[in-house]
Every structure is written in structure tokens, then in C-alpha cells.
Simulated scan of single mutants.
Amino acid sequence: MNDFLIGGVRRVGRLGFGAMHLPTAPGEQRDNAIAVARRAVELGVTLIDTAHLYGWGANEELLAEALYPYPPQLLLATKVGVAPPGELCGRPDFLRGQVDEALRRLRTDRIELMQLHRVDPQVPLADQVGALRELRDAGKIAHIGLSEVSVAQLTEARGIVEIASVQNRYNLQFREYEPVLAACAEAGIAFLPWRPVLPAVTADGPVAAVAAATGATGAQVALAWLLARSPVMLPIPGTASLDHLAENVAAAGLRLTADQLALLDAG
């Protein structure tokens, strides 16, 4: 199954795009970044992830420049909860201000998926999630997500408001959040693994072996493994390269055998 319903209602393709690596400074690299974002949509990507942290809003502005007016099938997800120079801040007034800024930068009156970038340990989770719930009720947010949370935090948040997604680090080599993935699968919550593609693939490891057998790249194998891992898995690989973008998108069509999956599962 190549589609998923965010919040049970908003259909997106299961292979998204993470915009974090797109350069935002004026010049040739920015022009290329705009081309990459536009090409992602042309290739059928319907979920693009960004955050206020990525350039302190510059990444959001880049996506608006590249893609506004947004095609109806595109879901833009962003994140709030981090203040310069990188301090967690989950105070409700701060979150409300960041959401308003995101609305302005993205040129929209509603954020389709607003994620709490990190849980601020200095602020009760109920206050942080409650602020996002109030913004949802006001029509500024359609769906609420969390990032880097435990099962206990996810459970607590779900007692306050409906949670549509969780974005935790997860890949072939890092599976610490397997219990969170299982909780998301049970509840039908989208799981967006960040850093989904391994930074390096050894020449003699299982990824290389499967890549050789399938004619795929190591990155495509890593993404195909994630897609096969759980029906709620929505990888969001990022790149600033048009060629790498096309390679990542093509991974959605790679089907691994049971034996290949078992080999990768074993590491």
C-alpha cells in the first residue's frame, strides 16, 4: 500500500520529502533548491516536511517561494518548539507565536500538520500539546504531530488531543524507537522516521548484498526496508540533488523479498 491517511482523513503518499537540506541563501544553490522542491512535487511527492528550526524560518519561506500556490494534493508539515540559538521552548505563548509566524511564511491560513519539534522538559506536556489543540480548534492547524517522543509521552499526549503523526529517528542501524513504532501502528498514527537513509553503506554488508541482487542503490534498499517495515511508516528522505531526489522517489517501487527483508532485519 503506497498511501496513508494522515489523521485518518488526509491522503498522502508514503514516501515523502524532508526539506531540511535545501540551501536558502540567495544564489545558485537557492535556485537549485527551489528546483528540487518543485521536482519533488512533479515526481508525485505529496508530503513535504520542514521546520522553523531549519534556517529559523528560511526553509519555510523557500518552500512557499517554490510551491505556492500549493497543489491540492500536497501536505506541508512543519515544526515548532525550538528558539534561537537552539533552546527548547514549549511555553504556550511561544508556540502560538511560532505557529502564527509559520502561517505567514508559508502563506497559508492553516498548517496541515503541525509538529512539536521536541518536548520541552521544563514545561508540562499537557501545556505544550494543549496549546496546539487550542490552535487546532481555532482553525490554524489541521493535524498535530510529535517528534522524538517515548511511548509514555505519546500516550499522555493522546489523552489530551488526537495525535496524527510521530517523527522519531529510525533506520536500519538505529531502531531504539521500535516500541514507539509499534504504538503508532496499533493506533494508526503515521510514523515519520528522520534520517531514514544510512549515511554510509559498507561494501560487504547486507544492504550492499541486497542492492547488488536488486540492481538498486543502498539508499533505495534502506528506504524500501522502511516501507516494508510497517504500513504506518512514512520516510522523509532529504536531499539538495535532483538526481538523488529521483533515486529516492524510485525507492517506492522497490519490492524486497522475504529473504532479503530477513537479511536486513538481522543487520
Results as ranks from 00 to 15, higher is better:
residue 118 R to S: 12
residue 151 V to G: 14
residue 68 Y to F: 15
residue 163 I to A: 04
residue 30 R to P: 09
residue 133 R to A: 10
residue 136 R to S: 01
residue 67 L to N: 01
residue 29 Q to M: 12
residue 256 L to E: 03
residue 34 I to A: 13
residue 90 G to I: 04
residue 118 R to K: 14
residue 257 T to G: 11
residue 177 Y to D: 14
residue 214 T to P: 04
residue 128 Q to L: 08
residue 17 F to E: 02
residue 260 Q to G: 05
residue 66 A to W: 08
residue 129 V to N: 00
residue 108 T to M: 02
residue 185 A to N: 08
residue 81 G to I: 06
residue 257 T to W: 10
residue 23 P to D: 07
residue 214 T to H: 07
residue 78 T to D: 06
residue 212 A to C: 10
residue 79 K to P: 00
residue 65 E to R: 12
residue 257 T to H: 07
residue 152 A to N: 12
residue 176 E to Y: 13
residue 174 F to H: 15
residue 99 V to D: 00
residue 93 D to F: 01
residue 204 D to G: 13
residue 236 I to F: 03
residue 24 T to Q: 02
residue 92 P to G: 02
residue 125 L to H: 04
residue 163 I to Y: 04
residue 206 P to Q: 08
residue 205 G to A: 11
residue 112 E to L: 13
residue 75 L to S: 00
residue 34 I to F: 14
residue 206 P to S: 09
residue 161 V to L: 10
residue 199 P to C: 11
residue 118 R to D: 07
residue 230 S to I: 03
residue 257 T to L: 03
residue 142 A to S: 10
residue 205 G to L: 10
residue 219 A to K: 08
residue 40 A to K: 04
residue 221 V to F: 10
residue 247 E to V: 11
residue 242 L to Q: 09
residue 18 G to I: 06
residue 132 L to H: 01
residue 68 Y to E: 08
residue 148 E to Y: 10
residue 233 M to W: 09
residue 149 V to N: 02
residue 81 G to R: 06
residue 161 V to Y: 08
residue 262 A to E: 15
residue 201 V to H: 13
residue 24 T to K: 01
residue 187 A to H: 12
residue 121 P to N: 06
residue 230 S to E: 02
residue 259 D to E: 15
residue 95 L to W: 00
residue 224 A to G: 08
residue 21 H to I: 13
residue 142 A to V: 00
residue 150 S to R: 14
residue 116 L to A: 03
